[in-house]
Amino acid sequence: MLTFNNLTIGYNKHPVIHHLNMHIEKGASVAIVGPNGCGKSSLLKGIMSFIKPMEGSISIGIEKNKIAYLPQSSTVDKTFPMTTLELVASGLLYKKGFLSSLNDEDLDLVNTTLDKVGLKGMADEPLKALSGGQIQRALFARLIIQDADLILLDEPFNAIDYKTIVELLKIVRMWIDAGKTVVSVLHDIQQVRENFVYTAVLSRELVAYGLTKDVLNRENLEKAFNNSFYPHKDANICNK
């Protein structure tokens, strides 16, 4: 499904991830863990082609329109003049084009999905009226109707309440049980242990990758979090 071949990506010629070699099988559930600034979010952006490789490559075994991406909630502009229904319905854009082309069947799907994520009756609410947890539920609803084969989640449970986390994790497990490939950046180690079969430990380079029960241990986590992971503005360009 996904292969990283000697991948180096970064900003202003300075790598945040360098020389990454890793393969993710179709249908795998993979958590990406590591310290802040170690390149976890950048890796997802690289998969989405938001960041171009400085070196190496990313091979993706499916078409781009079969990838669903959930950015960090902090990137959602709640002042944007959009309703909850419109946000969720934007998951159909690659199939339907403009929102104005949605038919009654599409709208029924959106409303049914809103019910599934606990947002019944909130279709016409503007984004500015939603709490952080409600925004995240709406974003998960958008992912559901995209029906993608590869789902990328960037810190999907930050700054939301426990009840919302539990309910959204049920959706993640639903995707995994359906055979979808799920790759998620996470900080909560217990969430990783309980929900993801594989884990990649990053600290600007790959510390460990494999079965969660094997690689998510104190040794690998200490190695990752003890590394120097913030690139200095005057650092030499990577030539490793």
Score class of each variant (00 low, 15 high):
63 E>A: 13
122 M>W: 01
147 D>S: 06
80 F>M: 08
36 N>L: 05
46 G>R: 01
35 P>H: 01
239 N>R: 03
18 H>M: 00
106 D>K: 04
162 Y>P: 12
240 K>S: 13
217 N>P: 04
168 L>M: 10
168 L>C: 04
41 S>Q: 02
211 L>K: 15
135 I>A: 04
36 N>S: 13
85 L>M: 13
180 K>G: 08
45 K>M: 14
18 H>V: 00
66 K>Q: 12
169 L>R: 12
1 M>L: 12
158 N>K: 13
38 C>A: 14
174 M>Y: 00
199 T>H: 11
118 G>T: 14
160 I>W: 15
42 S>Y: 15
194 E>L: 11
108 D>I: 07
54 M>L: 10
138 A>S: 10
170 K>N: 13
45 K>G: 09
53 P>V: 08
238 C>R: 04
95 K>M: 00
126 P>G: 10
154 D>W: 05
24 I>K: 02
149 D>Q: 12
56 G>M: 09
52 K>I: 04
215 V>L: 14
123 A>E: 12
96 K>D: 01
160 I>N: 11
121 G>F: 05
71 P>C: 08
101 S>I: 08
107 L>N: 13
222 E>P: 01
204 R>N: 03
17 I>S: 01
62 I>D: 02
93 L>W: 02
156 P>Q: 02
100 S>W: 06
218 R>G: 09
87 L>H: 11
129 A>F: 13
47 I>R: 01
170 K>Q: 13
126 P>A: 09
165 I>D: 03
19 H>I: 00
51 I>E: 06
86 E>R: 01
177 D>T: 08
192 V>L: 13
75 T>V: 08
199 T>E: 08
129 A>L: 13
49 S>D: 15
198 Y>L: 00
158 N>P: 02
84 T>P: 09
49 S>M: 11
233 K>Y: 14
193 R>W: 04
44 L>G: 15
39 G>A: 08
120 K>E: 12
194 E>S: 07
219 E>M: 00
113 T>S: 08
207 V>P: 03
